[in-house]
């Protein structure tokens, strides 16, 4: 299982992870080894097998539409690194 440096940089970009050059080299090596090991799954013929996403039969849970006290805004904002005017504050996303 080969992974190029560009592959690893692309994955890191998709995952929004800033990695050092050393990390990229290390993950390139380790991910390749792990994926190589996992190639053995291809030994199994699963053409006719349905996938399992969850072991439980998922069902909708209904409840009465009654208002309940929510967390207070201050509580929710208390853990934020930066807030302003009752909102989360982040670097500008638009020009």
């Amino acid at each position: 299982m080969k992974l190029s440096r560009e592959d690893v940089e692309h994955i890191a970009d998709l995952a929004r992870l800033a990695l050092s050059s050393r990390e990229i080299s290390r993950y390139r090596e380790q991910l390749a080894a792990i994926l190589e090991h996992f190639q053995r799954l291809q030994e199994l013929d699963t053409e006719e097998i349905p996938p399992t996403a969850s072991v439980l039969p998922l069902r909708s849970v209904m409840r009465d539409d009654e208002a309940r006290p929510p967390l207070q805004r201050e509580q929710v904002l208390e853990n934020a690194p930066d807030t302003e005017g009752g909102c989360f504050r982040v670097p500008a996303a638009l020009e």
Partner: peptide, 19 residues
């Protein structure tokens, strides 16, 4: 992602801050 809780590293852009 450094917005609602936990650690944040400052950066000039939103995407840079996430990463």
């Amino acid at each position: 992602d450094g917005v609602r809780y936990g650690h944040r590293e400052e950066a000039d852009s939103l995407d840079g801050m996430y990463k």
